[in-house]
Simulated assay, not measured.
Amino acid sequence: MIRKVITIGIVSLILTGCMSESISTLETKPVSLTQKDEPSEEFIPKSLKLVALGDSLTKGVGDESDQGGYVGRVTDMLEEEKEIKEVHVDNFGIRGHKTTNLQKRLKEENVVQALKQADVIVITIGGNDIMNVVRQNIFSLDFEPFRKEQLNFERRLEDIFATIRAHNSNAPIIFVGLYNPFKYMLPNLPEIDQIIEEWNSVSKQMIKSDENSVFVPVDDIFSSQSDQKLLYKDEFHPNESGYTLMADRIYQAMTNEDITKKFVGRNE
């Protein structure tokens, strides 16, 4: 009987030792956890800061659909891009503004701060400069006053670009060209088409010197002889259809330059 008890005890000790060794082995067995790679930054949608400068076209005057003119439409198209989470817009367009007004506007602190943070800058300016020449010479319109003012326009535009670049050297500038708003108001002045072409040429040459700037022509859109009405009832500003075509052209220029991929800004 004693031998049986001793035998049982020895077996129990052996089993307990085996279990302890097994448990000890399980407890000390190294565990390898594979950490998942963080998604590449290029696949994280980002916010884009768009600053719009200029005149009534940037303001969206004539757009009765309340879509914000070309700025609102371009914003909507940009937000469809998979790389873009949202677009923050600062629209500083003011009806009636000329290059002289824009020069002053660029000194305002809120505009300066917006420019410093901008990922993309869009500008329409110059239409009211031409309109001013027309008003001052309505009874004796010829090339001379337009070409004289063109030199002033060129100097002011150069100053505008220099000021913008002083605040932001990297953001692409999308400069929207002029179109002839007098085609229907003053149909007997075909010379205006040539004036528009010459003023646009000035802008194009200036933009060529800046590798991050793009000139977007729109004069052909509004010179079309199609039956589709593209101007607002004032026969000067675009209507909804006109702004849609402008926005398509501007967005296409951005796409061609890969602006949404190269210059999308901050994570939030």
Results as ranks from 00 to 15, higher is better:
K4S: 08
I8W: 01
I10H: 08
V11Y: 11
S12M: 14
C18A: 15
M19R: 08
E27V: 09
K29Y: 11
K29L: 14
P30I: 04
V31T: 10
L33G: 01
T34P: 04
E41Y: 12
E41L: 14
F43R: 14
P45F: 07
K46V: 09
V51S: 00
L53V: 01
G54K: 00
G54M: 01
S56H: 03
L57Q: 07
V61L: 04
G62N: 08
G62D: 06
S65L: 13
S65V: 01
Y70C: 02
V71A: 03
V71R: 06
G72E: 04
R73W: 07
M77P: 00
E79V: 01
E80L: 06
K82E: 13
E83G: 05
I84K: 02
E86T: 09
H88R: 14
H88N: 13
H88K: 15
N91E: 02
H97Q: 13
R105V: 03
K107Q: 08
K107A: 08
E108F: 10
E108A: 10
E109H: 03
N110C: 01
A114S: 11
Q117M: 12
D119Y: 05
V120G: 03
V122F: 10
V122W: 09
I123R: 07
I123A: 03
I125G: 02
R135T: 10
R135L: 14
I138Q: 04
S140F: 11
P145S: 04
P145T: 05
F146I: 10
E149A: 10
E149P: 07
F153W: 02
F153L: 02
E154D: 11
R165V: 03
P172D: 11
F175N: 09
K183S: 15
L189G: 00
D193C: 01
W199S: 08
N212R: 12
V216D: 02
P217C: 02
D219L: 06
I221P: 09
F222D: 05
S223F: 06
S224H: 11
D227E: 14
D227N: 13
K229D: 11
D234Y: 09
H237R: 12
P238I: 10
G242A: 07
L245T: 00
M246F: 04
Y251W: 01
A253S: 09
M254S: 06
M254I: 04
T255F: 05
I259A: 05
T260A: 13
K261G: 04
G265V: 03
G265S: 11
R266V: 12
R266F: 14
E268K: 15
